[in-house]
Design a protein around this nucleic acid. Structure first.
Lengths: 184, 184
DNA sequence: GCTCGATGTATCACGACGATACATCAGGAT
DNA sequence: ATCCTGATGTATCGTCGTGATACATCGAGC
């Protein structure tokens, strides 16, 4: 969900679309990309919902009479409203499937520093549970159809399985870290 | 692309939507899911394009007078047309970015058994190239912003990087196998 | 002075998703 | 016998994200 990513970035500093896009790419890595085609419509949506608003760019080139409140280059700087901050906190506090499913987990994790430790733990455990089930499903599926598959299909599925297993191991480490540092 | 996946499955045997969906899930594993929301519209589209057509289910329960050519349960069995076979072959022969980008690579690989060896090699190398670039990009990005990141963001990015590196290694193995068995 | 690449906003057609609705059928439980 | 559940089966809807594309300005180097 782009929504949470945008709110999270604006939570740290006001920003305009282009900047958001760049930050997004580097923050989520190749994990998730997000193009302008979804960014601008989403900004519009968030603005209408009242989570963000447009900052009048008084700092550079005070607008001549008759001009809209934009900076020289038509740059539109957005910032989080009070409602937006609250909404962001609500989103980060969710622990259901929406927080550990593929779409939501990455962005949640990217803003874990703003999430409560017990919530973090629940999300990590939820995801590990999900990935474990997925891996087991793939394992039995492979075992069941192994002989009927050509070597490429098999390779594809085994690579998928190993990726899932790797993620489970990774999550386990994160969970252990979370548990041991929780007493700080 | 669902298109290539459907054509590939129908290339092996005529099938109806529900069956396609199941095969798809097990074939692509968690790599790619595909829901009914895209499956049925795509079947419609492929039928209109002439790549597939509907098989009259004469085998079970001969339709009473006045009934449409469907089996008892309204089951619609699709099969590949001659045009469809040709189109499928064309798709499998593609070696550009559409064949090794995230969306296309998985389905291409799933039907590699029907693809020519030299094409396979080009696709695998294209993907390795792509993944190598992506991994390098992430590596420099991490190195550049390492100090500014909190530990969760760092974990997320390093996990992404390791996944990319793992895929590169996997692809390298596949490529070597392809090269050594090519002389068969 | 010119061109080129980065910055910046924006829209469009398209593909896919998740939820949902509806119907039939086989099986076991009561 | 009947009920209920879960698998089979087709289908649509609103929502979201993508990739391509258009357009405009800015700064730096030639």
């Amino acid at each position: 969900m782009l929504e949470i990513a945008i709110l999270g970035l604006l939570n740290e500093a006001p920003m305009h679309g282009y900047e958001l896009r760049k930050r997004l790419s580097s923050l989520l890595g190749a994990f998730r990309a997000f193009s302008y085609g979804s960014l601008y419509p989403t900004l519009r949506r968030l603005q209408e919902a009242g989570w963000i608003d447009e900052e009048a760019p008084l700092d550079e080139a005070p607008p001549a009479a008759g001009f809209a409140a934009r900076s020289k280059r038509g740059k539109r700087v957005y910032r989080l409203t009070a409602d937006g901050k609250e909404h962001f906190a609500t989103l980060l506090a969710e622990v259901g499937p929406e927080a550990y499913d593929d779409e939501g987990f990455g962005t949640r994790l990217a803003f874990f520093a703003h999430t409560r430790s017990d919530i973090r733990l629940q999300i990590l455990e939820g995801r590990r549970q999900r990935m474990t089930e997925q891996a087991d499903g793939m394992r039995t599926s492979i075992a069941r159809t192994r002989t009927r598959m050509d070597r490429y299909t098999l390779q594809l599925q085994e690579h998928g399985l190993e990726s899932a297993d790797r993620e489970v191991r990774w999550l386990t480490e994160l969970i252990e870290d979370e548990r041991t540092t929780r007493t700080d």
